[in-house]
C-alpha cells in the first residue's frame, strides 16, 4: 500500500459539495461566444486584407451611407440596456416588468432587422459586384443571422416567463441570462463591424 499513500483520503463533506457542483453553463456559453467571435475575426481580417492588397478599381461602386447604420447602432445599444433591465426585474421577482422589457428588447431587435433590410434594398451594389460588396454582405448578413437568432431567443424567454410555472422564473434565471450574454455579444460585434465597415 506504500505507494498509494500519496492518494490522500478525502473527507465526506467535500465530496458532498462535489456531487452538486455549480452550474457551468454560463462558462460554456462564454467559451462558445469566444469561438463565435473568432469567426467574425476571420471575416474582419479578410476584409481588412482585401482593403490593403486589392484596391478597388476607380469605376467600381462602393459607397455606404451613414444615417441608417448609425440608427442601427443606437437601436442595438439601447436594446442591450433594455435587456439588462429585464434581467434586473426578473431577479427582483417582478415578472410583469421583466416581460415588458423583454418585449421592448425584441421589438428593438426586429426594428434593427427591418432597418437592415431597408439598407440592403437601397444599396447601389449587389452581392457579386466586387469583393467589397461580397464581404459587406457576408459580414452584415452573418451578423444579421445572429440578431435573428437572438430575437427568437428573446421571444422564447418571454414566452417561458409568462406563466409562473414556466421555465424562466426568479429561481431559474439561466435562460434569460444566457440570452442576455449572447445579445450583448452580438451588440459588441456590431459596434466593431460598424467601425470597420462604415467608419474606416
Amino acid at each position: 500500500m506504500t505507494t498509494l499513500t500519496q492518494t490522500e483520503q478525502s473527507s465526506t463533506t467535500e465530496d458532498l459539495q462535489q456531487e452538486e457542483h455549480a452550474d457551468h453553463r454560463m462558462f460554456g456559453l462564454a467559451t462558445f461566444l469566444v469561438a463565435d467571435g473568432m469567426t467574425f475575426a476571420g471575416f474582419f481580417a479578410a476584409y481588412l486584407t482585401y482593403k490593403a492588397v486589392n484596391p478597388l478599381l476607380p469605376d467600381a461602386i462602393y459607397e455606404l451611407e451613414l444615417p441608417l447604420p448609425t440608427l442601427n447602432t443606437i437601436l442595438l445599444l439601447v436594446s442591450s440596456a433594455t435587456f439588462h433591465r429585464a434581467g434586473k426585474a426578473l431577479n427582483n421577482n417582478e415578472a410583469k416588468l421583466c416581460q415588458r422589457w423583454l418585449l421592448i428588447t425584441a421589438s428593438l431587435g426586429i426594428a434593427f432587422l427591418a432597418s437592415q433590410m431597408v439598407e440592403y434594398f437601397t444599396l447601389p451594389f449587389g452581392l457579386t459586384d466586387n469583393v467589397y460588396a461580397s464581404t459587406f454582405y457576408a459580414l452584415t448578413g452573418f451578423h444579421g443571422l445572429h440578431v435573428t437568432l437572438g430575437t427568437i431567443m428573446i421571444l422564447i424567454v418571454w414566452w417561458q416567463s409568462r406563466s409562473p410555472n414556466g421555465r424562466v422564473t426568479s429561481k431559474n434565471t439561466f435562460p434569460l441570462e444566457a440570452a442576455e450574454l449572447y445579445w450583448h455579444f452580438v451588440d459588441g460585434i456590431w459596434v466593431i463591424l460598424f467601425i470597420i465597415l462604415y467608419l474606416l
Binding site: 479578410a46 492588397v53 486589392n54 452581392l127 469583393v131 461580397s134
Partner: peptide, 17 residues
Amino acid sequence: IAHTGFFNPALGGNAVI
C-alpha cells in the same frame, strides 16, 4: 454557389487570402 469572388481572382478576389 453564388459566384461571389472572395477567393476567385477572375472576379477580383484573392486566392492567397
